[in-house]
Design a protein around this nucleic acid. Structure first.
Lengths: 343, 343
DNA sequence: GTTAGCACTCTCATGGAGAGACTGCTAATT
DNA sequence: AATTAGCAGTCTCTCCATGAGAGTGCTAAC
């Protein structure tokens, strides 16, 4: 549909607008980029691009700005995805290897690294399997009538709960109980435990009820816990200078609405997916502020094993090439690390 | 220093300004509150209050707004701290009892509840003891050469780390090792383990080195992990409509600078402490946006046992009475719950 | 000590006027 | 037929003056 020259002009306009955040004029493009045509010709082409919906004019007699459709065309046809620079790659790897122990904060760290790398908001979910299984459980005596149930699920996720007992148990007794339960249930999913419906002592029943409850809540996990980081990068962009917009985005953060507003898992369909502005029907339109945003999302891990999602959220006026490369690269790194730790 | 009438006028001005966020005029005060004097008299008194530094005029011929000193006087001498309404108390308790299991998100929940109750930002740190001790440790075989170290510290804090072994161990062997180590080191602090310097097998050494590292990093914990919630309440206040201010406060959030910017533990000296604007030398002045803020902070838990801190951060123009009551009440509830769980 | 009255000051909203930036269109050119 | 120069027209943005409104400070009377 677009001629060679129109494509190039579109590309130039987008490059320019991404940097300046201001409408782009024909004369300016003619000077700065090698179009090989006069401003008048560029104007004609721009008019055509506007006709077709790739560009927009805030008002007559101002320069053009790209539409969502313009960005989409750019991402799909014009952009050449660059390999992330070696420096950038090293920076990312280095930041990861600093914090080796304690994998609890792993995704938090990933979000932080990603946000810093792309200078936008980043969102990373915990890795999850489809149905979690018991790896190991343990009972620690806390006090006469209370004990701590420590549950290790696959992927080394830890859960704990304080339980209240009817009678006094020693640590030895609890350890024995735990050993029995481990032999019986290690490797089982919540559903399997329920299905087996074995005869249990009172304590065992108490423990397994708690285990089932915990595992169910993990499984139910429609509620993917996502870490959001770097929102300030987005909010400092000029398009969000109006305070209404700011508040809109802040609501995402505070109420833990993120997972709902941006259902990462359902969006990422293998590889990197780009959602631009309001052009994707999958994004619920609840939040106005999100309409001015694009989301670059990818899964990490492997589908059979544990997997999660990571995403960058920024204004539609975004450096797509760099952001996509970074997301792709980080997804790779995280997949590697995940594989290393839990084959 | 202040006459009866001056005090009352100051109180009225603050009440009014807290609600309206606009400079308060003499005539308006005269109409709405029972001063028993004409606007002219009120003006004279206001001039005197300004002289003494309790009030301020944004420009000649506008109403007055309270200064930090004015707020401080209000909090210390004029305000009558109200008991939190029974409704509000029940709301808070109810929100807590909804989420019983999984104490991981406990402080997160507290922050959320507090933020909602006072309609401002809330900050809650994890409960901590002075030097943490080993409660129990456990080794779970993950794969041939990897195992998961699960470390339970006092207060049921869980830490985990993946360790790589030189040779293959069965789960039974690991369990035995863990049992040995537990017998030897349960109840010890990091320093005590190091001091004892016992002879250990290679595996035991590997495990204990990791344990010491983890405990040290927990102890070092100048880095109190604090949960921040409800920042949007603060940012939606008119005094933060300028986007510069917004960005200033956002930095607190993103870079995990909160703990540094607001050293809760060192601020709270038993009971509820109120820090108003820039008037407290303990608050580092790094962040400009914080100068327009007050912090209401309290500890919870008991000094000997585990304790943490909770705080509300809001504009200096804040409903101090309600906020202080709420903080005090919530600190009480949290102390109770803490005591219940770990006697 | 208090108050009425009045002049004064400062803000804020309104509305040209002029400069600047770009475009769209027309007519000439290649 | 495509391109370009030239020019008029349009829109924004800033600046300035204007006037209404709000509230004070001061003075003089009570």
């Amino acid at each position: 549909m677009l001629t060679e020259r129109q494509s190039r002009i579109l590309e130039f306009v987008i490059s320019e607008y991404v940097e300046s955040a201001a409408p782009v004029a024909s004369q300016y493009i003619g000077q700065k980029y090698p179009v090989g045509a006069s401003p008048a010709t560029i104007r004609n082409e721009m008019a055509e691009l506007e006709e077709q919906g790739y560009l927009n004019q805030p008002h007559t007699s101002s320069g053009r700005i790209p539409t969502d459709r313009g960005y989409r065309f750019f991402v799909e046809s014009l952009m050449h995805e660059e390999e992330l620079s070696w420096d950038a790659q090293q920076t990312i790897r280095h930041q990861f290897h600093q914090v080796e122990h304690g994998q609890e904060a792993w995704t938090q760290l990933a979000a932080s690294v990603l946000a810093q790398a792309v200078e936008n908001a980043a969102l990373v979910t915990e890795p999850r399997m489809d149905a979690c299984r018991i790896k190991h459980l343990q009972l620690v005596s806390l006090h006469d009538f209370t004990m701590l149930l420590v549950l290790v699920l696959d992927e080394s996720r830890l859960k704990q709960q304080v339980l209240t007992l009817d009678e006094i148990f020693t640590q030895e007794e609890l350890t024995e109980t735990a050993t029995r339960l481990n032999q019986r249930f290690a490797g089982s999913s919540a559903a399997e435990v329920v299905a087996a419906d074995p005869t249990l002592s009172q304590v065992e029943r108490l423990v397994m009820d708690a285990v089932i409850e915990i595992m169910s809540s993990v499984d139910a996990g429609s509620f993917d816990e996502a870490h959001l980081e770097g929102l300030r990068h987005v909010l400092s962009q000029p398009e969000f200078s109006g305070s209404d917009q700011v508040l809109g985005l802040l609501e995402l953060l505070d109420e833990h609405n993120i997972s709902q507003a941006i259902p990462l898992r359902s969006l990422a369909r293998g590889g990197v997916t780009v959602i631009i502005g309001a052009d994707n029907p999958q994004l619920p339109q609840a939040n106005d502020a999100l309409r001015a945003c694009s989301v670059i999302v990818s899964t990490y891990g492997s589908p059979g094993d544990a997997s999660g999602a990571l995403a960058v959220v920024g204004p539609t006026r975004m450096r797509y090439s760099r952001t996509i490369s970074t997301v792709r690269y980080l997804a790779g790194v995280m997949s590697e690390l995940l594989a290393e730790h839990y084959e």
